[in-house]
Amino acid sequence: MPTQFEAQLVANRTLGGGYVVLEFSAPAGRLDGVVPGQFVMLRGAWGRELLNPRAFSVLWSEPDGRFAVMLKAYGRGTTRMVAMQPGDSMTVTGPLGRGFPPPGQGSVQLLVAGGVGLPPLHLQARVAVQAGHGRALELFYGGRNRDDLVLLDDFERWGIAVQCATEDGSVGARGFVTVPLRERLLQARRDGARVEVLSCGPTPMLRAVRALALELDVTAWLCLEEEMACGFGVCLGCAVPVHGERPYRYCCTDGPVFEARQVRW
C-alpha cells in the first residue's frame, strides 16, 4: 500500500555522464516488496515555485527503509535534486503503479534500457538474481556514448549477459540498442526459445522497441514516462493512448508498465 513519508538524503553518488544516484533513509518498511517498475513521487522543499513532485522508478530499496533513485539533471526539479546534500529531506509518496512481470516464468527476459530508463531493469535484475533466476535475464543497454552506460559493474557481478550499443560506437555495437536486440530476437526465433522484452528509456527508443516486438511477434513490456502531477490517479494528466474499450489509460495507476501491443502509438 502506498504511503506518504519523509526521507533524508544519505548519499549523492555521481556516476559520470551527469547521472547521479540519490540514496535516502526513510522509515522502515515503507517500500518493502516494491516491484521493479513501481515508482515514487519525490518533492523537496521547493517552496511555491515548483509545485509538483517528480516521479522516479525505484533503483533499490531495503527493509530498513533505505532506498535509491537514479537521475540526470534535465529540468527545474532534477537540477535541484542533483545538487542535494546529505541531510536534505524530501517528501515521498509510494510505492506507486504496477511493475514488470516477475522473472523465471519460463521465458528469458531481455531487458532493454536506455539512459535514465535503467533503474527498473536494474532492480528487475537484482530481484531475479536474489531469487536465483539470474540466468533467465539478459541486458541490452543503449546510449549516445560511453558515459551513458552506467552501473554496468553490477550486471557483471550478477553474472548477467550484457550487450551494449552506442551511437558513436565507443562501446558495443554502433547504433541504437535495437540493432543487437533484433539479432537476439531472430536467434531466439531460430532456436525456438521463449523470450520476452522488458524495456525502459527515452520514448523514441521505446517506440522502436515496440515496433520491433510487433514485427517479430514477441511480447514486450514498456515502462512509460508521462508528465504527472499527482502519481496516484487523481489529476488524470498522465494519460497513455491505448487500444481497447477505453481510448486512454493512466501511466500512474494502470502503468507505468504496459504491454506494447496495447499502447496506441
Binding site: 515548483l50 509545485l51 509538483n52 494519460a239 497513455v240
Partner: peptide, 23 residues
C-alpha cells in the same frame, strides 16, 4: 467522458496548466 489527448498537463512557474477534458 474519456477526456483529451495528451499532453494534458504541464508545470509552469508557481502553478500548472491542465487540459484534462472533464473526463
Amino acid at each position: 467522458r474519456f477526456g483529451n489527448p495528451l499532453p494534458r498537463i504541464c508545470e509552469t512557474a508557481s502553478g500548472m496548466i491542465n487540459s484534462i477534458g472533464l473526463e
